[in-house]
Amino acid sequence: MVFETLQVSIIIMNKEKIIQVEKLTKTFGNFTAVKGITFDVYKGEIFGFLGANGAGKTTAMKMLIGISNPTSGKAIVAGLDVATQSDLVKMNIGYMSQKFSLYDDLTVNENITFFGGIYGLSRKQIKEKSIQLVEELEMQNVANNLVGALPLGWKQKLSFSVALLHEPKIVFLDEPTGGVDPITRRQFWEMIYTQAHKGTTIFVTTHYMDEAEYCDRVSIMVDGVIEALDTPKNLKQQFKVNSMNDVFLKLARNIE
């Protein structure tokens, strides 16, 4: 057992750090939403970023994707400083959220073209990617339909693929499966697994605690700080419970 843990830590030490966060802090007026968090995410890892509503998750994530400036502390994402190189950060990461992902009034193909352009792909690349992506998702029959008319699960799968158009090293997924039916939710996670095996780092938030079990490592934020960070297995052992749901309930109770 000890040997196994040792082995795991050696593997992790050898891994390339793709996100390095040190004492990252964000203050709004006299309210500190993120209180000096420190953690690393490794290449090819599925990293679950959990926390209660209001714990500071969204604020932390906004800093990591370069759309909010840290008050203090440092974050390096894909080798780039989020405070001074935020534009480059945006070019080198993928982002998908449940709230905003694709344009409902554009077709599948138009969305791909639009986001390909945003990410700076050439016309030729966009054309190739469109064909490949539509084929992989088996969306040939709906490629010229408006995205708004697609079932939510399809939209989410398409949106994930669009976030990967420019082959980013890391992709941020903000509650990607909220409200999605149980079968599609699982298909979505299989897409995540496949992408992680190709070496893409996945940084994901979710309120489904069964999905927390699918992550390599999970952090749980409570009241602006990271209260726990480990593999799901170790977290369950540490808190002497049988599920990630119980870990979460133990840690995040009585906040807000």
Partner: peptide
């Protein structure tokens, strides 16, 4: 109608 969608497990409970 979906009062707990997007709500964390503690608040849901």
């Amino acid at each position: 109608d979906e009062p707990t969608t997007g709500v964390d497990p503690v608040s849901r409970k």
